[in-house]
């Protein structure tokens, strides 16, 4: 399935820059009034080897705003949808029954049940994008590790970064074509 939208917003995280400080996690929770005990962003860390021969990777993580999002195709009410203008994956609260099909369908476990009953997740700060502003996580990042932008725009910072640097995407085997790039 291909979903042609006006723009194709995605996110890149520079793994050479990210120090796992969690400022993005706090900024996201504050900006989006994420309920206590829940999180739309998180910091992932993989440590390999045995002391003293260790290597670590750390990155800020969230919804991957997939090109082929199973949360949208599995939703029985149309609540989970792809936003026309930005191509991001969003939830219409007023359509959501809280059946949790989308939660089960997400290989990234990026969704959770909001205490008010609907399913909640990263919106890529769509309310800010629509005002022409950058996302809260991107703005607050002290090492400028987070880049958000239109992957269909060849001149955007994210397109240039993904083009010019080695990057990887998580769980490509699950077939969702994520738009979240980890710059090496």
């Amino acid at each position: 399935m291909s979903n042609k939208t006006q723009r194709r917003f995605g996110m890149a995280v520079d793994m050479r820059a990210c120090v796992g400080c969690s400022a993005c996690v706090i900024a996201c929770a504050d900006e989006n009034e994420v309920p206590e005990g829940h999180t739309r962003r998180w910091v992932s860390e993989v440590v390999k080897g045995r002391f003293p021969e260790l290597t670590a990777e750390v990155w800020s993580d969230c919804c991957q705003h997939c090109d082929d999002p199973p949360c949208v195709t599995s939703c029985p009410t149309g609540a989970s949808h792809i936003h026309d203008q930005t191509g991001t994956t969003q939830v219409h609260e007023e359509l959501c029954t809280g059946c949790k099909a989308c939660v089960a369908s997400c290989p990234y476990d990026a969704r959770y049940v909001h205490p008010n009953g609907y399913i909640d997740k990263c919106t890529l700060c769509i309310h800010r994008l629509e005002r022409g502003e950058r996302t809260a996580c991107e703005v607050v990042c002290p090492t400028e590790a987070i880049i958000v932008g239109d992957l269909d725009d060849a001149n955007s910072a994210i397109s240039k970064a993904v083009r010019s640097r080695q990057s990887k995407q998580q769980k490509l085997d699950s077939g969702t074509r994520p738009r979240f790039h980890l710059l090496q």
Partner: peptide, 18 residues
Amino acid sequence: QAHEYAEVTSTRANPHID
């Protein structure tokens, strides 16, 4: 092999997810 051991951690702790 033992030295290829990897540990994955995450700060995410959403109820019923993690």
